[in-house]
Design a protein around this nucleic acid. Structure first.
Lengths: 222, 222
DNA sequence: CGAATAGTGTCTTTTAGACAGTATCCA
DNA sequence: TGGATACTGTCTAAAAGACACTATTCG
């Protein structure tokens, strides 16, 4: 019996939700796309530690949001052996460019919609894992401060709004959104200073607040 | 490396949230209380299947709500060997009496509050698993039809209200609760007939509706 | 009848959502 | 100045919450 760790790493690129995928170089499913991951390295490695290691090795990512997604261990999911995989969900802020200093050469960001389309072949049960990961992210946006994990250290409110719009696939009213995130206590706190965009009035900067749970929660409509 | 399954089995007894615990007969933690569970029996047994088997063997429970809670696999959680445990959350309706036809003789229901009090010694990291299971149940009550899993096939609205009050530890207004559960579409449907209580007007019977997700969600206050 | 629980109606306060209007930048 | 985005104010409709009231049972 083998224990593996798989990662659903989500980020925003050009206001579109993307996931990090790697092209498999070995059988089974050689040539197909897969979630980054690997087997537990040694018997004393913790699960979360293994996830952080894979995150660094395969994606070059350090301090990002990481949470357990679930276990996928049905017999037959890997034709070689009985493999039980612990899936983790990672949320990364927008990165300079694809993936710098990556171990797995074939790693690339792909829009989630494209990755989940029937035309894309994903290895093993990674389609299910990715679906569950995206669903988890969508649910947690409503009730937790997860959205800030998609942003850099400081961010504007309209950047935060883009996170919600991209992950949920909806359009939100900027004016109501503005008041809503401000009224959710502890969600965001003013960081001081402003950020200039291409055009228009500069926006004030904020950073993630102390609260992990959102009260009141965000609404998916309007 | 060993793979185990542990169960957080919750039910209501006398309007109090209870969890099923077994007294350990072997080392380590001999004599301490623990969540029911065990190792995967053979290499081809699925995880959910193993959870269902343990549910039947250790608690005599058949068709109950069962969902994955998480993986607990930090090195050192079991002094014998590296054990990775997949925790499942099970919700059972109120049962005739303790546990009939049980394999583990020492199985008993215990109020969750008591089980989590500092005076009770739980084996391994089962205190954490139980805490997570109760927290999951509390969260899911708001947005899903999980509450009906605590009730029998048919139930009255005040029985359903007792579930919320016990799990959340709050008092709810019966009149507003009544309208609330009725207005959440697909939550409960009339089953026909009434149930007589000790005193007062007989209550109409309902059964679980088709919806798993509650819209609008239930509120924890008032 | 009174006590107790079931179920309905209605009022008030709060919140969500729509949207007009002002502020501050760039070209 | 116009155009764009940031931010504020205000109105309306919907929902949450408080609570009076009627209905039906038992003793």
């Amino acid at each position: 019996m083998l224990l593996a760790v798989d990662l659903v790493i989500l980020t925003l690129r050009d206001s579109v939700l993307n996931v990090l995928l790697v092209e498999r170089g070995i059988e089974p499913h050689r040539g197909a796309l897969a979630l980054p991951g690997g087997f537990l390295r040694d018997r004393e490695e913790g699960l979360a530690a293994a996830a952080r290691r894979e995150l660094a090795e395969e994606a070059g990512l350090g301090e990002v949001h990481l949470e357990q997604l679930g276990v996928y261990g049905e017999p037959g999911r890997d034709p070689r052996d009985r493999v039980v995989s612990v899936a983790y969900l990672a949320i990364a802020p927008r990165l300079p460019e694809p993936v710098a200093g990556t171990d797995a050469a074939g790693a690339c960001w792909k829009p989630v919609e494209q990755a989940l389309s029937p035309r894309t072949e994903l290895a093993f049960d990674h389609r299910r894992i990715l679906t569950d990961g995206v669903e988890r992210a969508r649910l947690k946006l409503e009730h937790s401060a997860l959205a800030t994990a998609f942003c850099g250290d400081t961010f504007t409110i309209s950047e935060l709004q883009q996170v919600y719009e991209a992950v949920w696939g909806v359009r939100l009213d900027p004016r109501n959104f503005y008041r809503k995130v401000q009224s959710a206590r502890g969600f965001i706190v003013a960081a001081g200073g402003t950020r200039q965009t291409e055009t228009g009035r500069p926006a004030r900067l904020f950073r993630a607040g102390p609260s992990q749970v959102l009260n009141p929660p965000m609404s998916r409509s309007s």
